[in-house]
Amino acid sequence: MTFTTQPNRSFAGALSVQMRVIVALVLRELVMELGQSRAAIFWMFFRPAILVAMMYAIYSLNHSLTPQGMPLMAFCATGWAAYFSFMRTMADTTGSVKGGSGLLMFPQMTALDLFISQTVTQWFIYNFVFIGLVGFSMLVERSPLPANPLQVMLAYWACGLVGACLALIIKSFARIVPALENIVMPIRRLGHFVSGVIVSGADTPSFLLPYFSWNPLFHAIELMREAWWPAYVSPIADAWYVFRCLFFMAAIGLILERATRRFLEP
């Protein structure tokens, strides 16, 4: 039978320590990612911005691809910014424990704290990126404000959370079979094509929709677009499905993280 190492304290006490540790880690990560140089802030925006610009150029050259009822740059920004949040959150949180294993020497710190703090850090950073990119595209195209800003933000956050939950599952399995970490790159590549980033749900061939609709990211990105432009009606967007996927993935990830903690490399 396997048990875990835990300080002998109440649940409330443990929660308060965990909150303190996560806040300290988030502050540390933000200073490390953004506080070192001004160029870091530039690169933070530049990487997703260049992807949006490329998409914009391709769509501008091929008018047949223009999405229905949506300003072009805003369409690219919502799709790419959301996908970028998913991608970076997944990549950065997957590497969080490996990169910060020395931190586990602090008795209060657990691998899960490193993971959560990395997720929260990415959440902070990519909220700024999203607002910056979408704001810029709105200025350029004079597109309207979102009809339902809350739904836009919730759907955007869901994209990052899908990345974090997926990373938790992969990372936990990879403690037993390290080669599994190599799966992250193919998932990211495949995700470009099946998440509604390049083509909206309404423009996706109908025979592909049943296959694509398993992907919670596709739903989340479509929910963002629906919330932004009421004229756009997605054929697949389902908030309940996204919620169920997130709940299920988070539960599986947390159980696996707990079960595989003893395989963590010293």
């Binding site: 039978m1 396997t2 048990f3 875990t4 190492t5 835990q6 300080p7 586990l104 020497m105 602090f106 008795p107 209060q108 710190m109 657990t110 903690r261 003893r262 963590l264 010293p266």
Partner: peptide
Amino acid sequence: AGADVPDEGY
């Protein structure tokens, strides 16, 4: 220190 977790035990 809690930096490592036992296979079994507390």
